[in-house]
């Protein structure tokens, strides 16, 4: 009941396709069983890198603000936006700074490297251990369900349109089996020169 990771609820998922990545999250924010908001986004765009944050809503906000600060300073210092791989290491070290009083979050990162044009995704535990994955990364209160959906639906080298369909179906069907996730969803499809953001209508219970 008082597990910080499941007070507010929420889920996120990222997938790799052919020269593209997708990252998606639900929109619910609750207080235990009571739904509060259906517009709480958990995916944040930081230049051409995307960060999904699930877990304790307070820490989701705190970390999204912290990473906005850090990436803005990075952008001014380096005169370019941060690459996904670089950002992954920034997330890792930022989380490990709080090793003995951690943020209760499950971050995921997705993006396409602007130099190599290679898609990149990864996930983390709450103290910053990076989980590099070639296919998909899941996170949040519906992560068990997401693992199942992704294992069933995912196939490598999907085109952006098919990747959108796959990630959307995976997320939607996973959150429908979780009382703490759902209430709408947002999907980002990222290719090397385009970002498409889609808001999904879902069942509202």
């Amino acid at each position: 009941m008082s597990d910080p990771n499941s007070i507010n609820g929420g889920s996120a998922v990222a997938m790799v396709g052919k020269d593209c990545v997708a990252i998606a999250c639900d929109l619910r924010l609750g207080n235990q069983s009571l739904g509060l908001a259906n517009n709480f986004e958990k995916v944040f765009q930081l230049g051409h890198t995307f960060l999904g944050l699930t877990g304790l809503a307070s820490d989701v906000t705190t970390l999204s603000e912290t990473f906005r600060l850090k990436t803005n300073l990075y952008k001014m210092r380096e005169e370019r936006t941060i690459e996904p791989e670089t950002f992954a290491n920034l997330v890792s070290s930022t989380l490990y700074e709080k090793r003995f009083g951690p943020y209760f979050v499950g971050p995921i990162v997705a993006g396409i490297n602007s130099q190599t044009k290679k898609p990149f995704i990864c996930g983390f535990d709450l103290i910053g251990c990076i989980d590099f994955a070639k296919d998909f990364i899941v996170s949040g209160t519906a992560s068990d369900q997401l693992y199942g959906m992704c294992e069933a639906l995912y196939e490598p080298n999907l085109e952006p349109e098919d990747l959108f369909e796959t990630i959307s179906q995976a997320l939607l069907n996973a959150v429908d089996r979780d009382a703490l996730s759902g209430w709408g969803a947002v999907v980002y499809i990222v290719t090397k020169d385009q970002v498409v953001r889609k808001v999904l209508r879902t069942r509202q219970d």
């Binding site: 908001a37 304790l56 820490d59 906000t61």
Partner: peptide, 25 residues
Amino acid sequence: NWLDYLGTNVELPYCAHGYAAFYTS
């Protein structure tokens, strides 16, 4: 804005804290 002691902050059209939320939502 609805804020709890954890530091959750959401802008909402209507809201309440505690038991009142269960009866009025």
